[in-house]
Amino acid sequence: MAALTAPRIGGKPSRWTTTTILGIVGVIFAIPLVSMAEFTLRSTGGGYGFEHWLALIDPENERRYRMLWAGIRNSLLLAPSTVALMLVLLVPTMILVQLRFPRLRRLLELICLLPITVPAIALVVGLAPVYSVISGVFGSSAWTLAFAYGILVLPFAYRAVQSNLQAIDLVTLTEAARTLGASWPTVIIRVIVPALRTGLLAASVISIAVVLGEYTLASLLNRQNLQTALVQVSKSDPYTAVILSLLSLLFAFALLAVIGRVGAGRPQNRTTS
């Protein structure tokens, strides 16, 4: 049974090699994190303590951190909005292209990967007039930045979903479900979405990571998000900025761990006999 599912890798590296390599990489990643943690624990009067961490949640400082909390709130609102936008617009498009218009696949790929090659500043120049219209229609509440972020996450989300699409034969799965009596909505809910689960999750998580780390667009479009707030705060209060950077880094690591788990959770459909 084990032999049936175990990947067949010729000549695995020895345990010692693996441990050493992982150890070195781990240390390299840990150094900035540990340094940040150390920095946040320095007391103003010398020695170590949780003084700066406690200050952050001290009701007395509420005024001082108001902008910071607003930035966090906006980012936490933007993340799901962007994911929702991506899931609602990109995913159905990709499925439709895969099933009905395979000739458009190349074009779609090109369009989706394009944002990577456009510098953020060029994007802003293009987006500024668009946003004057968007503000007119939707107002200028924080979540409207999700339209711009939808473009930013496009390349990452596309790759994540596409790699999943390539691993399965969506056309045949769909046709099989249809011949077994499934209506189109049922095919989408019971077959397509579950079969693309891995890709959809990875795309969502990576989109969240991109949104939480975004600074340039928000700053240039005069919006507040986590990163712009951090920059503001760091000017007057480096400790708080570092604490929050540390937390958001750990959060990003956790998200990446989730991607890894999801990706490794279940091997993809084998395509050979």
């Binding site: 399965i168 045949t172 799965l173 046709e175 011949t179 009596g181 499934a182 077959v191 084998r270 395509t271």
Partner: peptide
């Protein structure tokens, strides 16, 4: 989906999930 026919495809078509 209403034709009442069973079909086996050339490529593997089991739902992977």
């Amino acid at each position: 989906n209403r034709r009442d026919m069973g079909m086996v495809f050339q490529s593997y078509s089991l739902f992977p999930h």
